[in-house]
Every structure is written in structure tokens, then in C-alpha cells.
Computed example of a mutant assay.
Amino acid sequence: MKTTNTILIVDLEATCWENDRIPPGQKVDIIEIGICELNVTTKAISKKQSIYVIPERSKINKFCTDLTGITPQLIKEKGIHFEEACEKIRDEYDSTSLTWAGFGNFDKEQIMEQCDYLGIENPFSENYLNVMNQFKNYHGLHKMMGLKRALKFFNMDFEGNHHSGADDAYNAARILRKILE
């Protein structure tokens, strides 16, 4: 694996239900992959984008749309299949050779689960960095906290819309950048 000064920050949005009650016959599906790059040398955050994904094992309901802003119509217009999304990430970010990060383990576990289920190769490397754990250790905290509270700890405001994958990834990158200073 080549060494580089770039870390990919990823945040997923997925199909969800009120009280986490998954209807029979449906599974949690990724519907947005928010991604950006953090250059650890220059501290620049770049290449922020949302990749919308067509859910193959579930439907987007009103609760999910209210939380994420992602509608079935948006997915119909801009969505691509998960396998295409993985190829796009590999092609545009050279993702298999970079460390990647997310705020918590949900993103890593969901990518791995969906890749396994669909028989698709994970577009990311084995090197995963849990920004939530980095934050907790940096501040010597015993409890985890969410993205918005972590930003407040650094006296930073959330930029963009919470539960937008691209905006959440960007804000997680801001936290990681602060920890690396």
C-alpha cells in the first residue's frame, strides 16, 4: 500500500424507520455516500460530494425523507446502483490505497455489510479511522458524543445540513483536522 497524505472522510445516509423498526422483508440500505478528502499536510478539505444510491433491499419512507432530505424522486433522478457508486469512489478517489474515516463505526460496518450481501469488493482500504474515538481520546472523555456536540466542543458550528452525507462527512473532516493540528 502506498503512503499518502490524504484521508477520505465518509458519511452514509441509509434507509431508516421510526424507532428503528425495520419492516419485514426490508434491510437497511445505503442511499447516500457523502465523501471528501482531508489533506493532512495542508489541512485542506476538498472533493466533497454526495453520491446518491438506489436502495435495492428497502424503500425510502416519509420518516427517512424527513430526517435526511432524500426523497424517492431525488434517488430516481440522481441515484446509481451501489456497485456503480463503489466503482466511482475507486476511480475518483483512489480509495483502495487511502486511509478512510467516519464518525463512529456505522459507516464502516454498513459498507462492509452491503458489499458482502451484494458480493461486491469493498471500495475502501483496510485502514479505517474512527473519528469519534479519536475525538474521545483527544479530549480524554469516557462517553461518546454526536457530531454536532463534538463540533461545539471545539467552538465550531455545524456547516450545512445535519444528516446530509456530504455535509456530515465535511464536518467530521473538520473535527479530524482540528485533532491533527
Rank of each mutant, 00 (worst) to 15 (best):
P24K: 13
I80C: 09
I31T: 08
E87T: 09
E77P: 08
S46W: 09
P72L: 05
A44W: 08
G25N: 10
P24W: 01
S50R: 01
R57W: 08
K27T: 05
E56R: 14
K59V: 15
E87I: 03
K78W: 04
C64F: 05
A85K: 09
Q26E: 15
D66P: 04
K62S: 13
T68H: 02
S58F: 03
D29Q: 02
I31N: 00
I70D: 03
K76M: 05
C86P: 11
I54M: 00
I35M: 02
Q73S: 07
K62E: 12
P55K: 06
N39P: 06
I80K: 14
I89D: 01
K59A: 15
I80T: 13
I33S: 00
G25A: 09
L38V: 03
E56V: 12
E77V: 03
I54E: 07
E83F: 07
T68L: 03
L74R: 04
K78R: 15
F82C: 05
P72W: 08
Q49K: 15
E84R: 13
L67A: 06
V40T: 15
H81I: 14
R90Q: 05
Q73D: 15
Q73W: 03
D29G: 04
E83H: 14
S58V: 12
Q73V: 10
L38D: 05
K27C: 01
T42Y: 10
D91M: 13
K78A: 13
K27Q: 11
A44H: 14
T42A: 10
H81D: 13
Q73A: 13
I30T: 03
E37K: 10
I30P: 00
L67Q: 11
R21W: 05
V28F: 13
C36V: 04
I80A: 07
I75S: 00
K59F: 14
V28Y: 14
Q26N: 06
E56A: 14
F82Q: 01
E77H: 12
P72R: 05
T41G: 05
I33F: 06
K48L: 11
I89C: 10
T68E: 02
G69V: 01
S58I: 04
P55F: 09
Q26T: 11
K47R: 13
P23S: 07
K27S: 08
R90E: 08
I51F: 07
A44Y: 14
T65I: 02
Q26W: 00
C36G: 08
I60P: 03
K47P: 10
N61K: 09
P55H: 07
P23M: 09
C36F: 07
G69E: 03
T41E: 13
P72N: 00
I31G: 07
E92G: 08
I35D: 02
E83A: 15
P55N: 11
E87Q: 13
K43H: 11
I45H: 06
